[in-house]
Write a protein that binds this DNA or RNA. Structure first.
Length: 289
RNA sequence: GGGUCGGUACCGAAGCGGUCAAACGGGGCAGACUGUAAAUCUGCUGGGCUCCGCCCUACGGAGGUUCAAAUCCUUCCCGGCCCA
């Protein structure tokens, strides 16, 4: 059984600093659980650890993809689990650090086994249908295709309804049935360490950090990514910091508004993160700092 | 000083005699989330309860009209604009 520390906390709560402290005491390697730091070129806006920090400790799952790559929490979980075991087998201590709740869940608990990738054509077709007809017709289709999820998704969350449909149309299997097929995670024993920061302090840190990002060149970074030819509609750029900066670059938002929007959206994001983390903590295994 | 428009909950903003504790948006808070997750979605947001209903305090202040007022009248205070 591999004892694994999971350093979790909201954005700007100090996860990186904490993990570097750990590195001074133990021979660790870090597995990042961050859905945005996986992308190359998105550096300032995702608050990646600095180059010198990355030199001190080996970091995995940072800068592993181009901004237009398709990726998913499931893929991440499988790959990162393998990496984690490899680290342990090499005699080092794996430490998971990140704030993406679903990524942490995928890595530590596993989602389900999905071998065939979803058919992109089907996904696009459903997406167009959503644009054209709204969510209701799609939701009604789900009733025929996957009744358990139809009942579960009564809020008609478009993302989830689409997911269930595209899965069925791609594989011919109900997503709710596929869930039964769990991947194994029985070689690790996660211990969650939650970096708890008082809400007002956290918000203050967020506000400052956003300001700092702007000074550090978030605009230039965004512009250069766009100049490489990456579409502003890419999932990777639908990220707090970048999406507002893109609007600003298009001249549709003032500088002050852009900054305060990024700050606000980052606070919202932090709140959602905390909801995930509380859940982990309540459900099991909290270790206090 | 005269005229005029306006003062509504944390903010913006509807309502213009009863069905109003007050639409809607923002913000805040809480939550859901098994492959796009920094995404997407949901709920709550005057106070107190014996909490699927009841009570209290509320729509700038004070009076008044009315069975009944955020909505009408008087007056006062405070803002915007126009004229002096």
């Amino acid at each position: 059984m591999i004892d694994t520390i999971v350093v979790c906390g909201a954005t700007a709560s100090g996860k990186t600093a904490y993990s570097l402290q750990l590195a001074e005491k133990q021979d660790i390697e870090i597995i990042s659980a961050d859905s945005r730091q996986v992308y190359k070129f998105l550096t300032i806006g995702t608050a990646k650890p600095s180059a010198s920090e990355m030199q001190k400790v080996k970091h995995h799952y940072i800068d592993i993809l181009m901004p237009d790559a398709n990726y998913s929490a499931g893929e991440y979980g499988e790959q990162a689990y393998a990496t984690l075991i490899d680290i342990a087998e090499r005699g080092k201590t794996p430490v998971i650090v990140g704030g993406s709740g679903l990524y942490i869940k995928s890595l530590c608990e596993g989602l389900f086994k999905e071998d065939t990738p979803v058919d992109v054509g089907i996904r696009n077709k459903l997406e167009m249908e959503l644009q054209a007809n709204g969510i209701d017709t799609l939701y009604n289709k789900l009733k025929e295709v996957d009744a358990p999820l139809y009942n579960l998704y009564s809020d008609r969350n478009p993302r989830r309804v689409l997911r269930a449909l595209e899965y069925y149309y791609s594989n011919g299997i109900r997503l709710s049935d596929a869930y039964a097929n769990k991947p194994s995670r029985d070689r690790i024993k996660p211990r969650y360490v939650f970096i708890d920061v008082a809400r007002d302090v956290l918000y203050d840190k967020i506000n400052r950090r956003v300001m700092q990002m702007w000074e550090d060149g978030l605009v230039d970074e965004t512009e250069s990514v766009l100049n490489m030819g990456y579409s502003p509609t890419l999932n990777s750029l639908n990220t707090v910091g970048y999406k507002e900066t893109i609007v600003y670059l298009n001249g549709d938002m003032s500088l002050d508004t852009a900054i305060s929007e990024i700050q606000k959206n980052t606070r919202h994001y932090a709140k959602r993160q905390l909801t995930w983390l509380r859940k982990f903590i309540l459900e099991e295994k909290l270790s206090e700092l």
